[in-house]
Design a protein around this nucleic acid. Structure first.
Lengths: 335, 335
DNA sequence: ACTCTGCATGGGAGCGCTCCCAGAAGGCTC
DNA sequence: GAGCCTTCTGGGAGCGCTCCCATGCAGAGT
């Protein structure tokens, strides 16, 4: 254990021949330090290999320099989706520039959810990042009440959070369906996502937006974003509306399920039925035919969330507490 | 900011009518407290909603109750692989039982790698978890030198770490190739992974183990675990050994690439050429035909890593500092 | 020469906790 | 009833830092 007797502020001060206060000022970048003193302190820090003790600092400043990323059970299952990975990467890179630490808080059970709330409001983190909430989760409200800045990823349903970042799900869906109309499809169905999530609601709204202009019928089936649910929805759609000539699935995974079902039913894609997904995931590349889908900037979403949170932690007033990121259609072979 | 004036230990003591020491003892589960005092303290804690101040505790105990999961650049790219997601989930669930916090440290550039090392050895975490190192990364050695317990996920090449958890890659590969021999294949090639990673080396060794008994030839091409590299390797293999009748790819993704190439070359799978992957990823389910592959217990790996680290942090001598987890073949249609 | 201003500086106080020691209280034994 | 453990208890000291106040000192103004 070489780490045993780390130098303290005091040791640095002694070596630099200055007082504790001056060293502290140098470390915290205060301007009121003479160039000479600053240089001496810097050198002493280097020579001693001094690293400030976070706990001691936190104790007095009440800042932990830590933010939590909360991942609740439902998302844990889909942890390996590119959406998630990209967002985390973005958060990480934005945070690295600020010196804040990211702690990963996973609530795997309801009891843990309780404990988590306790933890987050217990002066352990400076702010919280919440990803893709289901329904009207009370957590963000409680956190804000307790004075913990919170930024959500994805607009929640039934809640009006102060700050969140979201994809332009509605616009993306609209583009996708307009594209289907553009290639001459007239009986366009959608496999919508769960309506307790903003993504689900917005993508359905976008579908309807696009259809409004035409006089195409509104054909909706619901899934839960999983492949299996996409397949089931497709079966239902096929049974109810055998004449449809295009499908917009609210997620790539559901599109993959739908595609499987379509093949099983002997329909050619895109010949008989054109298919568009949403996400631009890896899965969309590997289908046969490759899936036309809507791209969403996941990494940028993470970065934006982190930026907003950092600003709030620093007490800045957000001129733009809600950020919506552009999405765009990626044309491949399925539509 | 309701969070302003949180109760302190002292406040709890006053309310319970006991001294600070007694409250501290109750919180830390010391046995030398009378039942009466304990009850009074518990009640006061509940009534006041007391939450211990982590920083103050850390300052005196020198324990941070935090461990870091280090994700280096190369892995960031593959963040969305199920391997990764499963491991993190396992780590999270094991850690939740102990009250330790997980911080996610991502080193996206070499300079950051430096800063990271500084951070990790700077008394900020009680232990470190390292995932799938490339080559002989000096980080684990340095950490141990500085007295920071470290557990690796995946055996590294050219390093002899004290403690790590790994899959039985060699055994899994052996099983896969034996299966190919078992179904009568005699000219079995392998698409091996990078040889600067334990996984790469071990899976190749397993392939050779299995072949040793038979007198089948040794046909190797290398990839980097990516789909593209799998396709390239397959092309090379096909060109050099047109007569091969089976391929063992060291990852599912490479198998997917190989499969694409095989189809392009007009070879039927498994009719002409049988194909086995390694990972049991989602991708393996969605190929046509579904991929026979080797399953690896990712979540268990995370749990084990966390368990080993916690034991080391608690100063326990590990009876078994190296843990190898079983892998097994999952038969599907491709072989 | 004197005061006045303003920046730079040293160091006391205190953040909330654990550690530990000294002492109180109770239960034995003889 | 005296003496001696044993168990439980209170609270002082101190972890390493930031905050802030008092002081020192140089330069400007009269």
């Amino acid at each position: 254990m070489v780490a045993m007797n780390r130098p303290t502020l005091e040791a640095v001060a002694a070596r630099a021949g200055v007082g504790r206060g001056t060293v502290s000022r140098v470390i915290n970048g205060s301007p009121n330090v003479s160039a000479k003193a600053r240089a001496a302190v810097r050198q002493a820090i280097d020579e001693l290999g001094y690293i400030p003790n976070r706990a001691a600092r936190t104790l007095v400043t009440r800042r932990t320099d830590t933010v939590a990323l909360v991942v609740s059970e439902s998302e844990l299952r889909v942890f390996d989706e590119p959406y998630f990975a990209g967002t985390i990467r973005g958060i990480g890179s934005a945070l690295a520039e600020t010196g804040l630490q990211l702690i990963l808080a996973m609530a795997q059970s309801p009891e843990e959810h309780e404990r988590l709330e306790h933890y987050l409001t217990g002066q352990h983190v400076d702010g919280v990042l919440l990803l893709s909430l289901h329904g009207a989760d009370p957590l963000p409200g409680r956190l804000e009440e307790m004075g913990v800045p919170t930024v959500l990823g994805g607009r929640p349903v039934g809640l009006d959070p102060y700050s969140y970042v979201d994809m332009d799900n509605r616009g993306g869906a609209r583009q996708a369906v307009k594209h289907l109309l553009g290639i001459g499809r007239t009986r366009i169905a959608t496999i919508a996502g769960p309506q307790d999530m903003g993504v689900g609601v917005d993508r359905l709204a976008g579908y309807r937006d696009a259809l409004l202009a035409s006089n195409a019928p509104d054909l909706v089936a619901y899934g839960d974003f999983s492949e299996e649910s996409g397949a089931a929805a497709m079966r239902a759609l096929l049974a109810g509306h055998p004449g449809l000539d295009a499908v917009f699935a609210a997620s790539d995974l559901m599109a993959v399920g739908a595609l499987r079902e379509l093949k099983a039913a002997g329909r050619r894609v895109p010949g008989d039925i054109a298919l568009v997904g949403f996400e631009d995931s890896k899965a969309a590349l590997h289908t046969d035919p490759p899936l036309t889908t809507v791209h969403q900037p996941t990494e940028q979403m993470g970065r934006q969330m982190a930026h907003l949170l950092v600003a709030r932690i620093n007490g800045e007033e957000l001129s733009q507490p809600v950020v919506i990121l552009d999405t765009h259609l990626v044309r491949r072979a399925s539509a």
